[in-house]
């Protein structure tokens, strides 16, 4: 089993005629994901590299029965793209776009609140269930099917964790990038509760970073609800306060959101915290014996 994406995923790529959209639609298809087409307003009716292009998500849904959408639309238009997908009945919307204004994300959150849709991201690498489906920008070849779940606010740090897992002979059930923005669709807790219902996930690596309190909230939830081992790493122990470290959400403000405080709360709630980002894979191997 797995979470979020699998062999039944029917993927639509919004912004497919852009350079990144086309590149990653292709890498997902090559990985084995069923990519049913793409959307670029005004460019419907074309077929590009074997991908059928539609003018709207609604039209694409009528023709393809897509259930997952992946968004590469530029930041000024990305919020609109998310809302369009949600309104058209897509079950899972994965927004890769980085740089969406916070105010736009407030609108998105309000818009999708009562719709039966899950948003992952924005500013995330996507999600992969190794051997079944890749919906995102991660390099597929580093993954292997297995029993360890990964959830992270960072893209490349997730790849690092996966690489380490593969090096110690551990495969992954599903790897989820929840994104580096202050407002996102799916939280650590949301992802952990999906892992909880997946009997094939035997352990989870949770990769957090400075800023906000999402990791702390997840730690408390995990202690009460999740009975399998969780290995944690928090990036940004050396970050100076008040500075935004690349990700819009990665900032220590008002003494809140420090790596130290997060590590402490994680430890207090039974999570195996590693100090070095190079130790994530080894720690999972050690804990799982």
């Amino acid at each position: 089993m797995s979470i979020l994406v699998n062999k039944d995923t029917r993927l639509l790529v919004q912004g497919i005629t852009g350079k990144e959209g086309m590149f990653h639609a292709t890498t997902c298809r090559e990985y084995g994901t069923t990519v049913v087409g793409g959307v670029t307003p005004g460019k419907g009716g074309q077929t590009v590299d074997g991908f059928e292009v539609f003018d709207s998500v609604e039209r694409a849904r009528q023709k393809t029965d897509a259930n997952v959408s992946m968004i590469f639309v530029p930041p000024p238009f990305a919020a609109d793209a998310i809302m369009e997908a949600a309104a058209a009945g897509v079950e899972l919307v994965i927004c890769i776009t980085e740089g969406i204004p916070v105010n736009d994300m407030m609108k998105v959150k309000a818009f999708i609140e009562d719709l039966p849709v899950r948003l992952l991201g924005p500013n995330c690498p996507g999600v992969i269930t190794p051997g079944e489906a890749k919906v995102g920008i991660m390099p597929g070849h580093i993954h292997s099917p297995g029993k360890v779940g990964v959830v992270s606010r960072s893209g490349t740090l997730t790849y690092e964790a996966v690489w380490q897992l593969s090096n110690v002979g551990l495969g992954q059930s599903t790897c989820v990038g929840i994104g580096g923005d202050p407002i996102n669709g799916t939280s650590f807790i949301d992802t952990m509760s999906l892992f909880k219902d997946d009997p094939d996930t035997e352990a989870v690596i949770l990769i957090g970073e400075i800023g906000g309190t999402a990791e702390e909230e997840a730690a408390v939830w995990i202690k009460e609800n999740f009975d399998r081992p969780v290995i944690g790493f928090i990036a940004g122990a050396t970050a100076p306060p008040g500075r935004r470290m690349g990700h819009a959400g990665a900032i220590v403000s008002g003494g809140e959101g420090t790596a130290e405080a997060k590590q402490k709360t994680l430890r207090e709630n039974g999570i195996h915290v590693v100090e070095s980002p190079a130790d994530m894979g080894n720690k999972v191997a050690e804990v799982l014996g």
Partner: peptide
């Protein structure tokens, strides 16, 4: 990547 950039700083430390 911002996360890996922070982690790189951390591991140097």
């Amino acid at each position: 990547g911002a996360g890996l950039a922070m982690a790189t700083m951390d591991i140097i430390k």
